[in-house]
Write a protein that binds this DNA or RNA. Structure first.
Length: 1102
RNA sequence: GCCCAGAUGGUGGAAUCGGUAGACACGCAGGACUUAAAAUCCUGUGGCUUCACGGCUGUGCGGGUUCAAGUCCCGCUCUGGGUACCA
């Protein structure tokens, strides 16, 4: 009979009792249970407080998940479960960001529709995610590629298309309102974030054709078409955003990227630069991510400053339109160049000419009476462009503008825009006098006499010796932007970007050939070359000089490609003593380097620091830099030389790609003008079938291949949205994922609000996170969401790196040597599959089987009977054979072990290499925890109803405290160790009491939910442990009445003594001194001082 | 160059307020149980030194503050990440 008993105990019992920890079965059962019972379904109408935990949703790649992917998901899952235990209604969803290049590249190669590839990949991702036991509410899954989803991405695009940014109210407003304003007063005085635009009044607006009107509106829309320099990647056939380009090659694939001028959809993110910057201060994000965004936005405060040229501009060549009707009228048009905002000069000029031809009756009367110096010998010009406005009549001598207003100016709303206009003109130093049509018509003499009075008064007061400012100079100027106006007296030359518009006109005859050659050369240099070659200093002297605004000294004007045309004004005032780039330039070309701030050694390098006293600087002498900056700006503004100004580096975002696998842009073209598709028709604008996923023969995007790609008989836009479109708002869709009426209902977004915790990789620091913030602010402006920032708290999980394993093959032999012996041979390292290796020891039999051709018949030179390989840390990638699939870990150790081990590896935020060294320890811990609930020899489930002892309660409450605090601080690694300590201590006490073990299970369940559910059920609970409340911490159990004090001498701990904690500190001191050991360490000396810190330490100072 | 983060045993890491450095785990060494293996359990484990008790030393480097420094201050070195002719 003994034989039979042995048979059962060895072969049958382990399989049929609940004795040991069968994680595979347990985990599958509970995953099924959660799915069937919808345990983690979040309710939209709940009385509970909400908590929204979001992971950055993945792009489902063909390679599937590796062990690095779930790291953040595990952390967010722990927080979600913790919050549910604490009575929160938790929204913890998951979805897929599935538009993207890999599926599309695969489609081009194989002809398989990317939707099919995507579907397969998603299926695999879902299986892998399910294996890990996440508490996602899968009923809310979203996919950016699903037409039910992307119709709302398209809808948001339409909202952007139908909005403009009003700088006065500092928010986006409907374009329909703007059109109403145009219809009543035109665009004068409107402060918009917009492209260059002409000025017009209501009558002119109404006179425009629809096409002209739409063209103008496009300049205002937040989603707009424009000719822009884009990063074109010919290999990928698409345009890339700045943050998708690294060192001149594409981030994905590493293909060469070139600069190219293209008509592109763009989003006016630059309008939000300041709000995106300010908002950062309100966020609980890491400093490094906030800094990255600040750098990207690149705000710099400084001042614009005009340098007059010493000689007039060379006549422009090849500009026939200058010989026009206006010159015949004898007006000196060159002046316009000085006073007009040169960016919009050409457009304004048309208006001015138009105005002259069609003067109103009253304007004409005034002109006839003031022309040819009829009044007080003052010369007036008519319809002159100043800044962005057209003045009716102007005298530069007196800096006086006369405006004849029609009825329209008396309208209430127009008064405001007139005020702005007046303000800007006043800034330029002009006074404005207004007469109405009625006044002129009714009482011409009265008007003229008032005019005479004003002129006389102005003449007597405007006897300023220095006649500076716009309008007075016949010679043109160069405007620079500087953040260091304090160093104005250190300027020794100006540098213009080679592309600067004045280069051709200022260059003297002798310098022309060299300058032209230089300009051509830098034009042909690719972006890549320019970046690769930042150390070579190059430039050319133009032969022209500018005048120093304060000293009047001539300043040579150079061109150099270290100055970028696209930033600031494309021109810099070079202060070589205090700017390293100017310094290098000056050294190279032997230009003077005058020092104006004390400090550094100018012989060796520039002194760029913003501290020190000003020297050699006239009115700034002796001031600290910070004071001098303020003073300099004051002076520059007072003298009309420039204004304080803020620049941002943030560029508008390109929003189109010449690709198939993206959201179609819901725009159709009528007479080449873009129009929005009606919102209710968006369900028609779904990705059409195409024969190939390649551009057409004529180079049009793949959508052009689709039959009937049209709307209302007009052609539809053929470019698609970029990868970041769908991810910029997905967090809102999770709140109300199946809504067919709206992108999200007001009730849902009002309840869930913004995300309490967002977890994802830091690689999205500027791309996704900035775009999503931009869209959120826009949606707030148009009243669709109640908050301004989408992600309150952001945690970046560190990357899990792979360890690749290298074996050493002896050169020219089929022989491999162990790591320690490789120095004896000439060897080549070869990557082998990391799964063949345990603790750097290669399983040779597995290796032979892995690639028989290479390893089966090879000879192996071992050390201590083992083949040791070399380990290297790097990215986890198929290429290095070091990808570890979480499925394998779940199979071998269970999901609970995987979850706890990933948390145990180290701080969530740190990058760390994946290694299975140590996973055994976590697995052993779970087995130990399991055994606490089971009888030792029989292995039956058994817990005791006995009352817990003080020691047991202390262990429990210490753990409650630690686990709670650690989750709040995202310190998951230390809470895992706290659980281990707890189990070790309970095991030592042989504690199996329900009152201790049940609360412990709840603490552990966010980390290891499957095993906890199983044990919870065995404890006799019918419901999921998920429904249990988090145990409350009672500090009373931790109170100690004595403490084992370390006794130290001069800071060195020598021994310990036990004292009651409520003992008087003086008494402790007395007892310590009296102690025999103390006397030994004192060696007869008297202690100088004894420090007793209650419950901490005793230090005796000898 | 600039910005941010970091550097602790053979390894991953802990020390949350300036108060016993190295928790927890891996690995390693030794032991128990076993015919054996697996599993499990026990002991030890920063370095140097000592038969031992113990002593000295020790948190990247050099200084400083303090009764007391991994922790605070000053100056460096190195590593990781971001960013760049942005005036």
């Amino acid at each position: 009979m003994l034989w039979l008993a042995d048979f059962f105990s060895i072969f049958l019992l382990p399989k049929f009792t609940m004795a040991s920890y069968h994680f595979n079965t347990i985990e599958k059962n509970w995953q099924k249970f959660w799915a069937e019972n919808q345990t983690f379904k979040a309710e939209n109408n709940s009385k509970l407080p909400k908590y929204y935990v979001l992971d950055m949703f993945p792009y489902p790649s063909g390679a599937g998940l590796h062990v690095g992917h779930p790291l953040g998901y595990i952390a967010s899952d722990i927080v979600s479960r913790y919050k549910r235990h604490n009575g929160f209604n938790v929204l913890h969803p998951m979805g897929y960001d599935a538009f993207g290049l890999p599926a599309e590249q695969y489609a081009i190669q194989t002809g398989q529709h990317p939707a099919i590839t995507t579907e397969e990949n998603i299926k695999r991702y879902r299986e892998q995610l399910d294996n890990i036991g996440f508490s996602f509410d899968w009923s809310r899954e979203v996919r950016t590629t699903n037409p039910d989803y992307y119709r709302w991405t398209q809808w948001i695009f339409l909202q952007l298309f139908n909005a403009w940014y009003n700088k006065q109210s500092d928010k986006a407003e409907p374009i329909s309102e703007l059109i109403k304003t145009f219809e009543t007063i035109g665009n004068k005085g409107i402060q918009a974030a917009c492209e260059e635009t002409v000025l017009f009044d209501a009558a002119q607006w109404k006179a425009y054709s629809e096409k002209e009107q739409q063209k103008i509106l496009l300049n205002y829309r937040l989603a707009f078409l424009s000719e822009t320099m884009v990063n074109w990647c010919p290999e990928l056939g698409t345009v890339l955003a700045n943050d998708e380009v690294k060192d001149g090659v594409s981030e994905r694939g590493g293909y060469l990227v070139e600069r190219k001028l293209m008509t592109q959809w763009s989003l006016r993110i630059s309008a939000y630069a300041e709000r995106l910057l300010q908002g950062l201060d309100t966020l609980d994000w890491t400093d490094s991510i906030k800094e990255a965004q600040r750098n990207w936005i690149g705000k710099s405060e400084g001042t614009s400053l005009r340098f007059l040229l010493t000689s007039p501009l060379a006549p422009l060549q090849g500009r026939g339109e200058r010989i026009s009707a206006i010159e015949k009228q004898g007006d000196d048009e060159d002046l316009w160049f000085v006073t007009a905002d040169k960016k919009i000069y050409a457009r304004l000029k048309e208006f001015a000419l138009e105005n002259r031809k069609n003067q109103t009756f009253s304007e004409d009367i005034i002109w006839q009476n003031i022309r040819d110096r009829q009044v007080e010998n003052v010369k007036f010009r008519r319809q002159h462009i100043i800044d962005r406005f057209i003045a009716d009549f102007v005298s530069f001598e007196l800096k006086l503008i006369i405006e004849i207003d029609g009825l329209i100016h008396s309208l209430e709303e127009n008064k405001i825009s007139d005020e702005i206009r007046t303000g800007i003109l006043n800034d330029h130093g002009f006074a404005i006098i207004r007469f109405t049509n009625e006044e002129v018509n009714a009482d011409l003499e009265g008007v003229l006499s008032r005019l005479r009075d004003i002129i006389k008064k102005t003449k007597s007061t405007s006897s300023s010796p220095r006649e500076k400012g716009v309008g007075d100079e016949v010679n043109p100027h160069i405007e620079v932007f500087t953040t260091r106006p304090d160093t104005i007296f250190g300027v020794s030359f100006l540098t213009l970007a080679p592309e600067h518009e004045l280069v051709a006109q200022i260059t003297t005859q002798d310098c022309k050939a060299a300058v032209d050659a230089y300009v051509t050369a830098s034009k042909n240099r690719s972006e890549r070359e320019r970046m690769a070659d930042v150390k070579t200093i190059s430039g050319q002297f133009t032969g022209a000089y500018a005048v120093h605004p304060f000293t009047g000294a001539p300043i040579p004007i150079w061109i150099g490609d270290y100055v970028l045309a696209g930033y600031g004004t494309g021109a810099v005032m070079a202060v070589p003593a205090h700017d390293s780039r100017d310094y290098a330039f000056a050294k190279h070309f032997n230009l003077p380097i005058p020092q104006v701030v004390e400090g550094g050694n100018i012989e060796l390098e520039s002194y760029d620091a913003k501290e020190g006293q000003l020297i050699n600087s006239d009115f700034l002498n002796g001031m600290e830099v910070k004071v001098a900056v303020k003073k300099a700006i004051e002076k520059i503004e007072a003298e009309g030389l420039g204004q304080g100004k803020t620049n941002y580096r943030l560029r508008n975002a390109v929003f189109g790609r010449q690709r198939y696998w993206g959201e179609p842009i819901p725009i159709y073209y009528k007479d080449e003008i873009p129009f929005a598709v009606d919102e209710q028709d968006l369900d028609q604008i779904i990705l059409p079938a195409v024969d190939k996923f390649l551009p057409t023969e004529t180079g049009e995007p793949p959508l052009a291949r689709a039959a009937n790609w049209s709307y209302k008989g007009y052609p539809l836009e053929t470019t698609t949205m970029p990868g970041w479109a769908g991810s910029s708002w997905y967090y809102l869709r999770y709140m109300d994922p199946r809504n067919t009426k709206e992108f999200v209902s007001k009730e849902a977004v009002d309840y869930w609000q913004n995300i309490d915790l967002y977890i994802g990789g830091s690689e999205h620091a500027v791309g996704h996170l900035l775009y999503a913030r931009f869209w959120c602010k826009f949606l707030k402006d148009i009243g669709k969401v109640p908050f301004e920032e989408p992600f309150k708290k952001l945690v970046n999980q560190g990357m899990i790196q792979g360890i690749s394993c290298l074996v050493h093959r002896v050169n020219n032999e089929n022989k491999f040597v162990s790591e320690g012996l490789k120095s004896k041979y000439e060897t080549t390292p070869i990557h082998i599959d990391v799964n063949l290796v345990t603790n750097n020891i290669v399983d040779i039999e597995k290796l032979r089987a892995w690639r028989p051709a290479e390893f089966k018949d090879a000879e192996y030179v071992l050390e201590d009977g083992k083949l040791i390989c070399q380990a290297e840390v790097g990215k986890m990638s198929k290429r290095w054979h070091n990808v570890v699939n979480p499925d394998d870990i779940c199979q071998q150790y269970g999901a609970d072990t995987l979850r706890m081990y990933e948390m145990f590896l180290g701080p969530l935020q740190d990058a760390k290499p994946w290694s299975t060294q140590g996973i055994e320890g976590v697995h052993r811990f779970l087995k130990k925890a399991w055994r606490l609930f089971h009888n030792n020899p029989t292995e039956d489930f058994e817990i005791s109803e006995e009352v817990a002892t003080k020691a047991e309660l202390k262990i429990l409450h210490k753990t409650i405290k630690k686990a709670t605090e650690d989750i709040e601080h995202f310190s998951f690694n230390t809470s895992v160790s706290a659980f281990m300590v707890c189990v070790n201590e309970l095991q030592d006490l042989k504690c199996n009491k329900r009152s201790i073990l049940e609360p412990f299970l709840i603490l552990l369940s966010p980390y290891a939910p499957h095993i906890c559910e199983e044990l919870w059920k065995l404890c006799g609970h019918a419901d999921s442990i998920e429904k249990a409340s988090w145990p409350s911490f009672n500090a009373d159990y931790l109170i100690e009445n004595e403490f084992y004090y370390p006794i130290s001498f001069n800071g060195k701990v020598r021994f310990n003594l036990n004292f009651a904690l409520d003992m008087d500190l003086k008494e402790v001191e007395v007892q310590v001194i009296a102690n025999e050991q103390t006397q030994q360490y004192l060696e007869g000396k008297t202690p100088k001082k004894v420090i007793v810190v209650k419950g901490r330490i005793v230090n005796v100072v000898v």
